[in-house]
Computed example of a mutant assay.
Amino acid sequence: MKISHHFDDATLMAYSAGSLPQGMALLVACHLHWCEQCRERTRETDAVGGAMLDSLTPAMLTDDALNAVLACLDEPEQEFSLSKAEPLADDHLPAPLAQVLGKPIDDLPWKRIGYGVRQLDLELDGPGATRLLRISPGVSVPHHTHSGNELTLILQGSYSDEMGRFCRGDVADLDGEVSHQPIVDTDEDCICLIATDAPLKFSGLMGRLVQPFIGL
């Protein structure tokens, strides 16, 4: 697998710091499963974070600090592993995503949201939304920009937009300054994992009309 598009430094720093929403953290973990370059960069951001912690002046604990820690132990465990360093064995789907889905891509309950476009809402906790999109050959997503951040990981197929061509394993790390219209450019479905922390902003009339129904 040749990966040409990677995360920016700020995203990997946020991942190392544990400050990403659950869906974005899942997406980063999935890309790391396939990408040695970003795994190495993440080891570096982990080291930077550790050095910053070592340089902090110790703070006094509050009287209820122990109770707060004990309360955290009662919280349910996350449903997926966010391994930052070790690649896992499954080459069909990234292991963290396979763990969440629990079944093959073709057996999922896809919901049609427009001509040639189906989606599956992963319904993860936290702000924003995390979805799988399955887009037919030759079909494009309506032209849009972003009111927040959007991360996209290509799981199958490819698409092209104003940023270039994105194939299996590539990620698009986008913010409100980017305006684009992805179009599937191969003869197979393009399947993407997409995590956003705010709704998209469709620029065309049709996109704005269908947005309430598709939930993007």
Rank of each mutant, 00 (worst) to 15 (best):
D173S: 07
K84R: 03
A195F: 04
A59S: 13
A98S: 09
V141M: 09
E75Q: 14
A95N: 05
L122E: 08
D63N: 05
P87F: 04
D197W: 04
S16N: 08
V117P: 11
V28W: 01
D46Q: 02
G114D: 01
T196A: 08
L132I: 04
D46C: 02
S158M: 11
R131G: 08
Y115L: 08
D90K: 02
L26H: 01
A14H: 13
S140W: 06
A71H: 03
Q181K: 12
M163L: 13
S83K: 06
L53T: 11
T45N: 05
S203P: 00
L132H: 02
D106K: 12
K84T: 00
S203Y: 11
C167I: 07
D74G: 10
P58L: 02
Q119H: 12
K84Y: 00
L108I: 06
E123V: 03
D8T: 10
T145Y: 03
G50T: 07
K84N: 00
V117G: 06
Y15H: 02
T152N: 14
L73I: 11
G176K: 13
L82R: 06
P127D: 00
Y15S: 03
D187G: 10
D187N: 15
P212V: 03
E75W: 08
R39Q: 07
L70S: 10
R208T: 04
E36F: 02
K111D: 08
S160A: 10
D125K: 05
A17M: 09
G50F: 09
A71Y: 02
H31P: 07
I135K: 09
C192I: 15
S179R: 12
E123P: 01
R168V: 15
L155F: 01
G114T: 06
H33Y: 03
I194R: 10
T57K: 11
I194L: 13
G215M: 05
V141H: 08
L73Q: 15
T196M: 09
A17S: 09
S158E: 13
A85D: 04
N67E: 14
D74T: 15
T42W: 00
L32M: 00
L216R: 14
L56M: 14
C38F: 01
F202T: 07
R41A: 13
L132P: 00
G204Y: 02
G138N: 09
A129F: 08
L153V: 06
D46S: 01
T45S: 10
I183N: 04
T45K: 05
E79M: 11
H144P: 11
